[in-house]
């Protein structure tokens, strides 16, 4: 694709993304207060974000890596989960996880 059509694609992506965001806010207003719907919505952030975390952490080059020896992300993520669980501190969780990851990477060089 040339630069002009790439810009058109970017605009298309923007329209789609904003459409989903604004459209769902309008849709949500008209939804009734069913208990199952409230329960459904309660689990949306937890399920979606956990799915992304698992993908980024456990899949290296599209193969599942569950070994703490070769998968440094897994070890760093477990450490970050422990920090988040004990402290509930966002910044500390990210910093500890990232430093652990870098140290493990450094050791394996």
């Amino acid at each position: 694709m040339n630069e002009a059509s790439l810009f058109l694609v970017v605009i298309g992506m923007g329209v789609i993304t904003y459409g989903l965001r604004a459209g769902s806010l309008q849709l949500g207003e008209r939804l009734p207060h069913w208990p199952w719907l409230n329960s459904f919505l309660r689990f949306v952030p937890v399920a979606v974000l956990s799915a992304i975390v698992a993908e980024v952490t456990l899949l290296a080059n599209n193969t599942i890596d569950l070994s703490p020896v070769t998968n440094h992300r897994l070890v760093a993520a477990v450490l970050a989960i422990l920090v988040a669980w004990r402290t509930r501190h966002v910044l500390l969780t990210i910093v500890v996880g990232m430093i652990a990851f870098w140290i493990l990477q450094g050791i394996s060089f």
């Binding site: 952030p45 937890v46 399920a47 969780t93």
Partner: peptide, 30 residues
């Protein structure tokens, strides 16, 4: 970005139902 999501999700795991949602969502994603 995975670490950010960990920091956001873990405090929300207040009961069994939320923990199960996280475990099933994560396992299926892989």
């Amino acid at each position: 970005i995975a670490l950010t999501f960990i920091a956001l999700v873990v405090p929300a795991l207040a009961d069994q139902a939320a923990v199960l949602a996280a475990l099933v969502g994560g396992s299926l994603a892989v």
